Simulated scan of single mutants.
Amino acid sequence: MTELVWQQLPADDRGLAYGDGCFETLRLTPGAAPLWSRHRARLLAGASRLGIPLSADELDMALVSALGRASESGAEVLKLILTRGSGGRGYAWPEAMVPRLVASLHPRPVRSPHDYTDGIVAGLCQQRLALQPAFAGLKHLNRLEQVMARHEVQQAGWQEGLMCDTRGRPVEFTSMNLFAVVAGELWTPPVTECGVAGVARGLILEDLAPALGLSTQVTARPLSQLDAATEVFACNSVAGILPVRKLAQWVWPVGEITRSIQGRLEQRFE
């Protein structure tokens, strides 16, 4: 049975000691979590890959508790952190494993409306993403690469930073997935060797893009691929779709495909 706790973590928790777990951050509306089925599926899949027992019923009960608290506080973001639970010193799994689900509620980050209408400015991070297929796609608790890349973003004054893998291929932004329109098709990098399989990314590929009649390409391509892009945007389930108007030497308009996908995603939260 998974232990549900609110905003507290013992010092011997393996998530703190070793990053032994995974997490979800989801956007709430009054009384609902519109993309819950996708967040739940990803957290269950992550738990399965890491060998941490977790059931859909336990997650649903946690959501009910969170929605009740959110209705009182007005919070719009729920973060769920799943860890293997407490354990002694050493990497070996504890023999008596009691997973821990840590829940916390937060306001939705405030962004300027111009970020959505006019686009954001991003830069190219020097921090690279290591290739590790065993954990690729997971939203696991080991985020040091993103922490260091985000520091670059802060130091440079960008709004986001694009991260490449150790071969120099673009993968994702520090906290958002990357999409570009190239030759009329919607392209995004694969997350089979590194990177996060974002909930919004999956929704776009499986639902929103097909609904617009768009062909999609999920292929590893060089950074020079951006030379041919006519539109670029970043996405995650909390922020939604942010057009990218400038990244390093590249400049793009906010195009119709970006606006259409942006509008369709926002409809899910109405």
Rank of each mutant, 00 (worst) to 15 (best):
242 L>E: 10
79 K>M: 11
259 R>N: 13
98 V>L: 06
173 F>S: 00
170 P>G: 08
172 E>V: 06
148 M>D: 12
194 C>F: 07
241 I>M: 05
211 A>N: 09
120 I>A: 03
126 Q>N: 15
238 V>R: 00
232 V>R: 09
270 E>S: 15
254 V>G: 03
102 V>L: 15
55 S>G: 15
267 Q>F: 11
51 G>S: 01
156 A>D: 06
71 S>E: 13
123 G>S: 10
171 V>C: 08
63 L>I: 05
85 G>R: 01
46 G>V: 02
178 L>E: 01
251 V>L: 14
127 Q>E: 14
204 I>E: 04
33 A>Y: 01
176 M>T: 13
62 A>P: 02
182 V>S: 03
254 V>Q: 08
104 S>A: 09
136 A>L: 03
83 T>C: 00
171 V>N: 00
112 S>H: 10
242 L>S: 09
157 G>I: 09
224 S>A: 14
242 L>C: 10
45 A>P: 00
148 M>E: 04
12 D>R: 14
208 L>P: 00
141 L>N: 14
186 L>T: 01
17 A>F: 08
9 L>F: 03
135 F>A: 15
202 G>I: 03
97 M>G: 05
207 D>C: 09
240 G>Q: 07
67 L>A: 15
5 V>C: 03
188 T>S: 07
46 G>W: 05
258 T>A: 08
74 G>S: 12
127 Q>C: 14
22 C>K: 03
45 A>I: 06
99 P>I: 02
187 W>N: 00
230 T>L: 11
112 S>M: 11
245 R>A: 11
96 A>G: 13
128 R>Y: 03
143 R>E: 07
207 D>V: 11
239 A>Y: 08
70 A>G: 08
8 Q>H: 14
76 E>A: 15
257 I>E: 07
147 V>S: 15
244 V>M: 11
270 E>C: 13
82 L>E: 02
268 R>F: 14
213 G>E: 12
13 D>G: 11
5 V>R: 08
15 G>A: 09
7 Q>H: 13
121 V>E: 12
200 A>I: 05
101 L>V: 01
270 E>R: 11
227 D>N: 15
104 S>W: 13
150 R>F: 10
222 P>I: 09
166 T>R: 07
124 L>E: 05
175 S>L: 09
128 R>D: 02
131 L>Y: 04
164 C>L: 12
83 T>N: 02
156 A>H: 13
91 Y>C: 07
133 P>A: 12
228 A>E: 13
258 T>Y: 05
228 A>Y: 13
101 L>S: 04
65 S>P: 03
141 L>W: 03
79 K>Q: 13
119 G>P: 04
42 R>H: 03
50 L>M: 13
212 L>A: 12
244 V>A: 01
64 V>D: 15
249 Q>D: 14
173 F>T: 00
100 R>E: 00
259 R>V: 05
193 E>C: 05
2 T>C: 09
254 V>C: 14
